[in-house]
Design a protein around this nucleic acid. Structure first.
Lengths: 125, 125
DNA sequence: GCTGAATACAACCGTATGGTTGTATCAGTG
DNA sequence: CACTGATACAACCATACGGTTGTATTCAGC
């Protein structure tokens, strides 16, 4: 019996908020390729270790990265799924945009045959 | 004489920050299709007109929407270019991700033929 | 089982953010 | 010109955010 698998509706707020910081975006970028611990990551940025640690925490809460113990360090990896979540929203907007264009073209095509229908479309307030 | 058109390097911070709010994302979505003034927009949300106005200002500063005078109202339209800016960054990350996968596959392929090269690749600290 | 490297966490500070209310500007319309 | 619909802007408040320093925790390795 398939119970219509409820995918948790992603809350975009923390994802976009996490991406709205240069340092955090750079951490994401780094963590795509490298496998660095938090201390190693911190060495790249002109701020305290604790500050970087906080950034990592923000990214982790947003689901953009995960940490895994390896030896004594916790290696940071980016989670491509979370990136897709954000991208899908933008794609959706793009879809709406295209739909609008299509509708406008459609409208133009119709109007070309019956110009006086314009009055009914444009609500002048 | 083409002067190597310098596209201003987009600062992603305000774009993602603007998208990190449910109300603002909804404004963007609405403004893709509809052509509403700020007052009309505000009517959709459970907050004061001024609050919505601020949200619109944030979106405008981020370049995600534009306002155009039509009659007495200022009609809000989303700027698909800005959405693309954000999307391109995510695409770039996805590219890095794929590149990493490819490199790993490459590595596996090489290793299959010469197992003892593993030592040189894995830096054990 | 100690020691120390790597990480986590708490407290604090200045500034930014999201909301409010109130007042000012500005352009159509009677 | 006066009126009013639509917007802008300023002041204020509570809370969140990005940074700091300092202290606690937790394993890896000897």
């Amino acid at each position: 019996m398939v119970v219509s698998v409820q995918i948790a509706p992603p809350d975009f707020d923390p994802v976009f908020a996490a991406l709205a910081d240069h340092t955090r975006r750079d951490i994401v970028r780094r963590a795509i390729n490298a496998e660095e611990g938090v201390l190693e990551l911190a060495s790249h940025y002109p701020m305290s270790f604790a500050a970087v640690q906080k950034h990592v925490a923000v990214l982790e809460r947003a689901g953009l990265i995960t940490k895994q113990r390896i030896g004594r360090r916790r290696v940071v990896r980016t989670n491509p799924e979370a990136l897709l979540v954000a991208r899908r929203l933008l794609d959706q907007y793009e879809g709406l945009w295209r739909a609008r264009i299509d509708r406008m073209n459609q409208l133009v095509a119709e109007t070309a045959g019956a110009i006086d229908t314009v009055e009914t479309k444009e609500s002048k307030r």
